[in-house]
């Protein structure tokens, strides 16, 4: 069982620069044709500082950490038993190429279902940009399977 005393645990802030090339790769890999995600001039004409990061890109910024599975490591979970159950985003200031985004994650819940056959972890990650603005947040629900 996962140690529930980790509920409330907050990670050290992690700062990451939003790279133009990665945004363009992401847009291509997801079949995006909207120019604000591909063409800097189009993004600026639409009022953005640079290429716009798409709605799910905060998840990728968090994966840029040296240990992308930092909370799996922290909670001593076996990665092979992990499923991504749910993913939620809220939005603040747009995230654009060239921004420096600071991420802080908190373990907000840990609970078991089905007599302990499945455990659930909620991890909330909040983002702030280089101007100190709220750049949105995301909450992921991770399911850990324990076959009986």
């Amino acid at each position: 069982m996962i140690d529930t005393s980790y509920v409330g645990h907050v990670t050290d802030p992690y700062s990451v620069t939003v790279e133009k090339g990665r945004l363009r790769d992401f847009a291509r890999a997801t079949g995006q044709s909207d120019r604000v995600y591909l063409d800097e001039a189009a993004a600026q004409a639409a009022g953005y500082r640079g290429l716009l990061a798409p709605p799910t890109y905060l998840f990728s910024l968090d994966l840029d950490r040296e240990d992308p599975f930092y909370f799996i490591t922290l909670l001593k979970i076996d990665l092979a038993r992990v499923l991504h159950g749910e993913q939620a985003f809220t939005y603040g200031a747009p995230i654009c190429a060239g921004d420096t985004v600071t991420l802080v994650s908190e373990v907000t819940d840990i609970y078991a279902k089905k007599g302990g056959a499945m455990e659930f972890v909620h991890l909330k990650t909040s983002a702030t940009n280089q101007l100190g603005e709220d750049a949105g947040s995301m909450t992921r629900t991770v399911i850990v399977r324990h076959p009986q």
């Binding site: 604000v36 639409a46 709605p55 159950g85 993913q87 939620a88 809220t90 939005y91 747009p94």
Partner: peptide, 15 residues
């Protein structure tokens, strides 16, 4: 594709 991204407030999915 329906509204500009600036109109988006929340976005949640279950896998």
């Amino acid at each position: 594709g329906w509204v500009p991204q600036s109109a988006l407030r929340e976005f949640t999915t279950r896998f």
